[in-house]
């Protein structure tokens, strides 16, 4: 009886997994089909496998600067991740560890902004970015990202768990505050830093609303916005569009496959630690 129950549960989960994975598989499989097979659907797998769609999107850089978009995306996501890890970890360290007058109040103010929905900042941030002359540059997406409170919160909680005696010993040995941060706190925080790093990278890679607002010219686009452009200009050419989708999805999916434990554990933690 117990065995049958377990089999039923496994069957249910397998069915759910198939339902959730099929659309992702379809992005890849459909990008390898000729257009005629896409319009007249003839099965999930291509009858005639072809790389023509990929050849076409990579061979016409003037019309479809997909390589440019890929570079933009890689640069922006890497820079955002670097900035957040650096700036947020420094702030979290100061707030968690250093005896600063007013740090408690400051922490509360920073954490309170986690409740604010992002769209309320959309218009004023646009105007500030415009004032700074950064519209239509990658910096419009990179610099404001460093202000988010999520990373400060996550790292602050993690730093609190590091035994203080280690830091005290280093200070007795003549280590500076910066030395403690650089040589003790950061190396001990690798799990938290990598979780935050992966979240940040994926979030930035997939971000859609900010590039839509801050970028105008086609050669400045990131992949998600570039790919969305396809839908309007190449509406009938599903093959090309889906090949572009593959270019946008594959890096994120690879990162997910490599780091899924980190990612899933990180999500679980953010939900429970409240």
């Amino acid at each position: 009886m117990k065995k049958i129950r377990l089999r039923l549960i496994q069957f249910f989960l397998l069915a759910a997994a198939v339902v959730f994975l099929t659309p992702i598989a379809l992005i890849f499989l459909t990008s390898l089909k000729p257009d005629s097979e896409i319009i007249h659907f003839s099965g999930i797998f291509p009858r005639q496998w072809t790389l023509d769609n990929f050849r076409e999107i990579f061979d016409t850089p003037e019309e479809i600067p997909i390589f440019r978009w890929l570079l933009n995306s890689v640069f922006i996501s890497s820079a955002v991740t670097f900035l957040i890890l650096l700036v947020n970890s420094m702030a979290a360290y100061a707030l968690a560890r250093l005896e600063l007058p007013g740090r408690r109040g400051l922490f509360v103010v920073i954490i309170a902004t986690l409740m604010i929905p992002g769209q309320i900042l959309m218009i004023p941030v646009y105007l500030i970015i415009n004032k700074l002359g950064l519209l239509n540059t990658p910096w419009a997406l990179i610099i404001p990202a460093g202000a988010g409170a999520f990373g400060v919160f996550l790292l602050h909680q993690f730093f609190l768990g590091i035994p203080r005696s280690l830091e005290d010993a280093a200070i007795v040995d003549g280590c500076s505050i910066f030395g403690v941060y650089r040589h003790i706190v950061l190396p001990l925080s690798k799990p938290a830093l990598s979780t935050l790093g992966i979240f940040t990278f994926l979030g930035s890679w997939n971000d859609f609303l900010s590039p839509l607002i801050f970028l105008d010219s086609v050669d400045k686009f990131t992949l998600p916005v570039g790919v969305a452009l396809f839908q309007t200009s190449y509406a009938a050419e599903y093959g090309l569009t889906l090949a572009a989708c593959v270019v946008c999805t594959a890096p994120a999916l690879l990162a997910f496959v490599f780091f899924q434990r980190h990612i899933i554990k990180g999500i679980a933690l953010t939900g429970l630690k409240e």
Binding site: A16, I24, Q231, T241, C245, Q260, I264
Partner: peptide, 20 residues
């Protein structure tokens, strides 16, 4: 595997998911 499979769509960009 089941957990990863069901979680996987959340890492797809909305523009790709939307087109699809």
């Amino acid at each position: 595997f089941f957990k990863a499979a069901i979680f996987a769509p959340t890492i797809i960009s909305i523009s790709v998911a939307g087109i699809l």
